[in-house]
Design a protein around this nucleic acid. Structure first.
Lengths: 144, 144
DNA sequence: TTAGTATCGGATAATTTTGTCCATTATTAT
DNA sequence: ATAATAATGGACAAAATTATCCGATACTAA
């Protein structure tokens, strides 16, 4: 469904958010440990998220990754996914046709659109904060 | 969503079905042309589908690929997808956790499960024949 | 029996994704 | 200023996916 990079990305952002709620910055090392991901690869993914302004980063000691407290409850999962995987997953044709729409549909178009739309809706209505809170309350986990 | 191989696979099966309805066998060349896919790669995918008994193949002149007329209306899309991509796409965790279930869920578990289930339902209730008929009647297309 | 046709299977190559390593830059505390 | 810390950026490597090629095999028709 999502690429591995995207899976790591979401998990990382949720963890960072769960710590930002408590005004804590986290290092790359912590992130990789908490979400059980390869450190260097995770670094690349976080850089992408920094560039697309989903997360903040500060260098030097006391530095680390965080999410702007103001933005915390407005960041939707959709932004994370699009930053890493693009929007093909919830916009593209299920059978890989470049041109597939109501006028010129693939045979799966109508049914598949329902799934896509449901996914898109999930991504556009789910906030990172909401997921982070599950982590805080021990109602959700980011590894295993 | 689906791998490229799986996209080609579905398109190929739907085309083969649309011809089997008319008792026509089709060659690899025809398939690749009709679904606009690389011929040799498509060959590998068709071999997988033969081994998993989704389609039939006959060698020699007058040979080609086809689908058993008896089975035509009972073959679900799910079989094609599982034969090529496995079931991770509608069974696996959205965030890539190996262990993710109601007891030990990822923070996206509940919401994501709805999407997965919808996809699984789509794949389990949609028949290849149903899609093939759209092609026959010009209500669906397999390239562009 | 032979020529022709079409799938099968194995080897190999190209591309993309995933993952690693290291020097550089920025920042902080001493 | 200096040393320590943490992200950054670039090059590189491994693995998986996508794609190609070709000889072998099976079958048909004449």
């Amino acid at each position: 469904m999502f690429s591995k990079a995207c899976e790591y990305g979401i998990r990382a952002v949720v963890f960072i958010a769960s710590q930002s709620v408590q005004s804590r910055k986290v290092s790359l090392k912590e992130v990789a440990k908490e979400i059980d991901s390869p450190e260097s690869y995770t670094s690349k993914i976080l850089q992408k998220l920094v560039k697309s302004e989903v997360i903040l980063s500060e260098k030097g000691p006391t530095g680390g990754f965080s999410i702007d407290y103001q933005k915390l409850n407005s960041i939707k999962l959709e932004r994370v996914v699009v930053a890493i995987d693009g929007d093909q997953i919830f916009k593209g044709c299920g059978l890989g046709l470049k041109q597939c729409n109501a006028n010129m549909p693939c045979p799966l178009h109508d049914k598949f659109k329902e799934v896509r739309d449901k996914l898109q809706n999930l991504l556009e209505t789910t906030t990172v904060l909401e997921l982070a809170e599950k982590i805080e309350y021990g109602l959700g986990f980011l590894k295993r």
